[in-house]
Design a protein around this nucleic acid. Sequence first.
RNA 1: GCCCCGAUAGCCCAAUGGCAGAGGCAGAGGACUUAAAAUCCUCCCAGUGUGGGUUCGACCCCCACUCGGGGCACCA
Length: 825
Amino acid sequence: MTTEREHAAYDFAYVQEKWLPVWDKIEPFKSGRADDPRPKKYVLDMFPYPSGDLHMGHAEAYALGDVIARYWAQKGFNVMHPIGWDAFGLPAENAAIKRNEDPKIWTYENIAVQKASMRRFACSFDWDRVFNTCDPEYYKWNQWLFLQLHERGLAYRKDSAVNWCPDCQTVLANEQVVAGLCERCDSAVTKKKLNQWYFKITDYADRLLDDMEQLEGKWPEKVLMMQRNWIGRSTGANVDFQIEGMPDPVTIYTTRPDTLYGATFFVVAADSELAAKLAAGTEVEKEFKQYLDSVKAASDIDRLATDRPKTGVFLQRYAINPVNGEKLPIWASDYVLADYGTGAIMAVPAHDQRDLDFARAMKLPVRVVVETGEEDPNETGVATGGDGKLVNSGSLNGLSKAEAIAQINAQLEKDGLGKAARNYRLRDWLVSRQRYWGTPIPIIHCPKCGEVGVPADQLPLLLPDAAGLDLKPIGQSPLAAATDWVNVACPKCGTAAMRDTDTMDTFVDSSWYYLRYPSSTNHNEPFSRTDVDTWLPVDQYVGGVTHAILHLLYSRFFTKVLFDMDMVSFNEPFTRLLNQGMVLMDGSAMSKSRGNLVRLSDELANHGVDAIRLSMVFAGPPEDDVDWSDVSPAGSVKFLTRAWRLSGDVTSKPGVDFSTGDISLRKATHKALHDAAFAVESFRFNVAIARVMELVNATRKAVDSGCGPADPAVREAVEATAIMLSLVAPYTAEEMWDRLGHQPAIALAGWPVVDEKLLVADAVEAVIQINGKIKERLEVAPTITDAELEAQALALPAIVAELAGATPVKIITRAPKLVNIVIPN
RNA sequence: GCCCCGAUAGCCCAAUGGCAGAGGCAGAGGACUUAAAAUCCUCCCAGUGUGGGUUCGACCCCCACUCGGGGCACCA
């Protein structure tokens, strides 16, 4: 029966070539067969950007996601594990400019390359559901959704000082600016006053925050925390201040209305309209304008330096403190932000560090109104933020911070001077981009009708052909040059009108793609309600933590909008989330310039797909970074070979009755199955593999020097090993399954049912301690009672001797594991 | 500056408050071999970053600190 081939060393290349075509035929991971009775599970990996061939990071991410998908398939679920490509975006466009060709060509070529690599990498993807976001069939629905948001007032245009990347020559969302730099190219981001499209994500701030309760314990705590910080809800009060010589009051926002009596001056954001209005016609108008120019010239980087000195201009105007009628000088400064709160604040230098810094710089008075027990801020220069008794505060005197806030809020509301209010750090999502390779915004600007949506029956609004367009970034969308495309008649009134020439942020594409997979071939709607109700929400999402805020927040926002549109019945898209770490080399991220790049294709050629997947999964907890210099793909090959060899040692026939097998090996098998399943379900894949390694070691021993290869327990152990290995090493597992005399595909063999009776050990070792120190060990039955164990322990000669007649103060017994006898020292 | 996470053997990592070691890498020795490779077997190595506390008992819980990683950053 055995061939020469099987006696040779394990040949991973041969095995890979052997099984790929077989799987293509069987399609073990096709989901959605109409008559499939299995319960459903949706396992999703974040889709890749086609920037070249797959790299080590992809290998890790998809190896981890595949463990989960394949595990649930083995557990009898109808798993949908789809893949597609996030295919619009700047890299394609930049490559196109460099090569002077259509970004479409570069993109689809790369997709083909990645697709071939992924197939060889043997992920359990359902290849029938693939789509690319740059397919007109997909971006049609991007446009449709944009129009839905537009109709609901959730997509709107406004003039604003936006983040501008001078290198990419496009605007950036707040989320794409990292420490003042463009997240893509690291150029210093500047501000530019532009009219741009926004999605009103701020309308959903409270729900985005409060619904996180559902995700508690199911998403990494880190991600939830990052989103909470990003949304940044604060509670406080809006208070109206009259301005001397002005008809209308100015509203300020404060989180500390209890300190109203401590306000000694008033600050408005220098770049706000309010500041310009207050400065207009005063003697200092010129000085103010000079200051404003200097503020505008400062880059984000400069602004972000928190330790830079406070600057500002006194506007020669006064605000009246509504609680005590005091005149507060009004200053314009850049330490107050125009787009947070109302762009104006009351300054309470005693209890706010920034106000104190400003007060000291401008020689303004400081008045303590809360006795916190800390040192006087007048002397230390350190504002006191703690709780304490209110002083110098009229009717608030003697109250605590919380009491004072409640009382002043009530009083302000009663007097019509203010009320409790909330603010958010979150800003609306800027979605328009001045670049070519994206979804065209389906709006026509009509001189008569204004913003008119492209009629639904004209979607998709196709991108104009790149041929003839100059894609080089010039600060204006290249689409503007496609005059035939731009000039259209208004769909409403027929007047000559112009198309919007901007394209959408690619994060729009990825905000709903997970809804499309179940309906990927639906030509009539973005997704069908039936499909979505069948498969969604995603049971398990797997991807990098880099998207903790951007993609995951936008997707949650989209889901809530669609919920409000009654298009989906859930309000959170991803029930569980796993963030995998990065793949490093010698402690740092791999990069060509650093010279520590490890090529995935080389690793696969040298060690085989299974060994690379195994190395990734076994390297440590999935959320930790993997340093490739710490792992041993050669060690993985060795282990796989060891497991594979066992499949050739089994001499019993398939279907043999396991119940007569060697009991100790059977126990090892069932314990491994039980523990590995538990480990996988708790995302401790490295531990699961350790359990399989143990079983392989135990089986090796049983074959060589134990029950021998003919024992049914050996077959049971090797079959279990193959099934468990199928989660990480599909080729090796399939080959083992074949050698064991089974038909493919092992992926659907099913996780063997664990016999609880085999999980109970015959005897366990109890530890006998005196004052917490181990003195003796005792073999006992696992069913022993506390009383029995205690009696046996106290009768042990060594313990009797150790006690030397002393009377135990206390005896703690935890049968069958331990007895701790406490005696006075 | 604020917030979060982590620290266990030469290295990567395990341990429902109950024997610090599951697994692997690296290393040493042995068996097999004419020899080497491969394979198999055996072995070495820390008392859990530091200092306190709670507990019969702490890697695990609490407090303070050190170091490392990450997030936010003039958000009133």
